[in-house]
Design a protein around this nucleic acid. Structure first.
Lengths: 327, 327
DNA sequence: CTGTTAGCGCGTTCAC
DNA sequence: GTGAACGCGCTAACAG
């Protein structure tokens, strides 16, 4: 069913139908009502594809997340898409996958769909493959990178200063008497590297020993296992910072299992202020990366950039410590 | 940039460009290479909108979830979209919102985008508004309802028999000596109603008292609060089934806080076998609704239905109990 | 093997 | 106020 079918039934021309569909003024009320009625009777819905073709505007913005099962990222995508929908934009959310090639592939897919803007959520997009894909296929449309940065003239960014966040955590632990502060990190992402860097700087400043243990899995089990390795290597550890809350949840479980007191023997600080940190037992203290603020900024830049193709902004938000039962 | 621009630069016609773009056979290798080169040099990407317009096929399938922040639902969406992408389909995931009107609105949006198929995830889509919207705007394309049912000739369904699952839970608790088995549920969804019904049947069969307490929030706090109310009303409770894991996580926390022993004093069973149930402390026993199996079936039906517009199937999978530390 | 023509569903002039 | 004609970017059918 097309506007021609509607036109025929209503005894008017297609352009008249198009006019009522787009609320154009200067149409006889009777004609308009008649057309509206036929449209309704036939459950007609306009083809956005055809419409986009002539308008050169799809009204869609693409949101890429490397793994939609990641609570933290999906939460960001949620907030952005909700804002977008209120402003008449239809956001299409896609799971871009782990590999850099796959991620680059998805920016190409969204380019083919001619989205009006692109949002990248998560520092793992920060790689040459994605940067190239954007430079090649999305050089004309606004791109907002949440939690990462590209050296491209039209790519805005919104990042949490994770280096600062980790330094704050060390500082807090130190000022409360901890002297053997360890850091357990998960994946090798730009975001995690900044956390490690912050940890190292803060440790060095205070002449503390550096205990860095990588976790092999991004899960509670991974956190437990890494914590076990940490204690085997450095039994004197009296505080642990985890690069992500879920690791801390697993870690605290392991520590309690082997009879350690939290925070008596060992203090724990996670990262992200995620739901996990709130429901864990004991409740996990955490570095709040201000996801809500991040997303709000992201959305605001997005709106400005869609209106003004030349608008670019780089925003940094400062994390803060949320103290609960593990410190 | 269009295929005409490419054609001009390559000194061929647009249809030749179209042919190489679509890997059509019977083209001179030199011509093909030349065209390919120009395409590459200009970072040209085909407009899927235009392509879809003539092919009457967008290669997109819409996935609707009422709240993408819901772990359980997003996990289902993830599995389906991964399968889809492997088969050349581009899935567009949308957050349909809580209200029935909003949900119906989204099926209309996806209809306008002319998706090749629609997947609904979550029993909350089971309402007159959505059913009507589908009947009106999506009567010609395959729809798969995961965890719900519509009395529409072209809508397939894949559901977990949650009534059975809850009955099994009661049965297990009973056979282990529990006689005051309570049920704490969250929202008033079709899915939850089935769980309640299962609980009631199983309770009645055994002449047990019926303790049903609604939680006001779908969170750990809600679970704790509901558990508190339950004990105030029925201090003799010796087992609790929660309609969703997160409630059980909050409940267990509360019970430990007031000095109850788990499972000594009270046994706990959650629902969904979610990550929450695994990381909670103590680890929560749960009714596994077989999300993976559900999604796999959903995807398989989807594929068949896309190929054969008349294909419809209704599948039921049986939940099973996963016993951990709270029983 | 390649070019020409027509048409997908819609919005937009420009006449009337 | 309304209609005819054209074009958006692409593919298909038909020639050649």
């Amino acid at each position: 069913m097309t506007i021609y079918d509607i036109a025929k039934e209503a005894g008017v021309s297609a352009s008249t139908v198009s006019r009522v569909l787009n609320n154009r003024p200067g149409i006889n009320k009777e004609t308009r009502d008649k057309v509206l009625q036929i449209i309704d009777e036939n459950n007609f819905s306009v083809s956005e594809a055809a419409r986009g073709l002539v308008n050169k505007n799809t009204n869609m913005v693409g949101i890429l997340v490397s793994d939609i099962r990641n609570q933290h990222h999906i939460e960001g995508a949620y907030m952005i898409s909700q804002h977008l929908i209120e402003h008449g934009y239809c956001s299409i959310l896609m799971n871009a996958g782990e590999s850099n090639e796959s991620k680059a592939q998805y920016v190409k897919i969204l380019a083919s769909r001619r989205v009006n803007a692109l949002v990248l959520i998560g520092s793992t997009f920060q790689c040459a493959e994605v940067e190239n894909a954007i430079a090649m296929f999305m050089s004309k449309i606004p791109v907002i990178f949440q939690n990462g940065y590209f050296d491209l003239p039209h790519v805005s960014s919104v990042v949490a200063d994770e280096l600062f966040g980790t330094m704050e955590a060390v500082s807090y632990l130190y000022s409360h008497g901890r002297r053997k502060i360890a850091f357990i990190n998960n994946n090798d992402t730009p975001s995690n590297n900044k956390k490690i860097k912050g940890y190292k700087i803060a440790i060095e400043e205070r002449n503390l020993p550096e205990y860095i243990i990588p976790s092999c899995a991004d899960s509670a089990e991974g956190g437990a296992e890494a914590t076990e390795r940490l204690l085997a290597e450095h039994p004197d550890t009296d505080a642990i910072i985890y690069s992500v809350d879920i690791l801390g949840v697993g870690g605290s479980r392991y520590l309690l299992d082997i009879g350690k007191k939290i925070p008596g023997d060992i203090a724990l600080i996670g990262t992200d202020n995620s739901p996990y940190s709130k429901i864990s037992n004991p409740r996990l203290s955490t570095i709040d990366n201000k996801l809500g603020e991040l997303s709000k900024n992201c959305y605001e830049i997005l709106m400005k950039a869609i209106k003004d193709r030349n608008y670019v902004e780089h925003k940094v938000v400062l994390p803060s410590l949320v103290l609960r039962e593990t410190t």
